[in-house]
């Protein structure tokens, strides 16, 4: 099963191609540029470099958030277009779980944290099990010190582009989280593809028509005026 993974929840614009247990290729750029100009050229290049065509894809896995609202929508709208055109399943993979998947077999707790503006962080806490990260606490949207105070006891490692904020907050509370190398720190499309593939082994994909990003934060207008329903 050939799975295209898409990761656009942060500044990282990443794509990966996973053929069952084999990672055929992965491209990622981590710069301050809009994903809209880069995502499809990266997908197109990757699929062709790996010797495939668009029609070869069996499924699309997309990082579903939380993260940058615009980044998530670019990834999800692109993934929906591809999935619909090919008639292939679409799987939304929680971004924080995909980030935790960067450190398989880590014995302690993994706290994935992504920058959320206004000094806040999206975060969730995972424990690695045989088949991937298992959510033990969160997700939260809060300032780093508040997240640190809600962490379960035990050794914690911080991943994600908010890891520096969480690590700094942890130190002020007497914790000494281990350092993480850059390649394991940021969201990766390969992890998204792998978790998506894994889910498709035992379950159906998501409904491409209705799948929406996980925002965790209502829009500013909803916060101010409430939603029409409520």
């Amino acid at each position: 099963m050939l799975v295209l993974g898409i990761e656009t929840a942060t500044l990282v614009c990443g794509v990966a191609l996973l053929n069952d247990e084999r990672l055929c290729g992965e491209f990622a750029v981590n710069v301050h540029k809009t994903h809209s100009t880069r995502l499809l050229p990266l997908i197109d290049n990757l699929v062709r470099e790996a010797g495939f065509t668009p029609a070869s894809l069996d499924a699309v896995a997309v990082s579903s958030g939380p993260g940058s609202f615009t980044g998530l929508r670019i990834g999800l709208a692109t993934a929906k277009g591809i999935s619909f055109a090919l008639g292939r399943p679409l799987v939304g993979v929680p971004t924080l779980a995909a980030v935790a998947h960067n450190l398989p077999h880590y014995p302690g707790l993994i706290c994935s944290g992504l920058r959320a503006r206004r000094g806040e962080v999206y975060a969730a806490c995972y424990r690695q099990e045989r088949d991937g990260p298992f959510l033990v606490a969160g997700p939260w949207l809060a300032p780093p010190p508040e997240i640190i105070s809600q962490l379960p006891d035990g050794e914690v490692v911080f991943l994600g582009d908010g890891a520096d904020l969480l690590t700094a907050a942890a130190r002020t509370q007497g914790l000494a989280p281990p350092p993480v190398p850059p390649f394991a720190l940021l969201p990766r499309a390969a992890a998204v593809a792998q978790l998506g593939w894994q889910r498709l082994q035992s379950a159906a994909g998501d409904d491409a028509f209705t799948l929406t990003p996980v925002y965790l934060r209502p829009s500013a207008a909803e916060l101010k005026f409430g939603s029409p329903a409520g």
Binding site: L39, F69, R73
Partner: peptide, 19 residues
């Protein structure tokens, strides 16, 4: 811009996958 990007991204995905 945010509204435009949804249409542009979906259109790209559709066009690319359908050749």
């Amino acid at each position: 811009v945010g509204a435009l990007l949804v249409g542009v991204s979906a259109a790209k995905g559709l066009a690319w996958a359908a050749g």
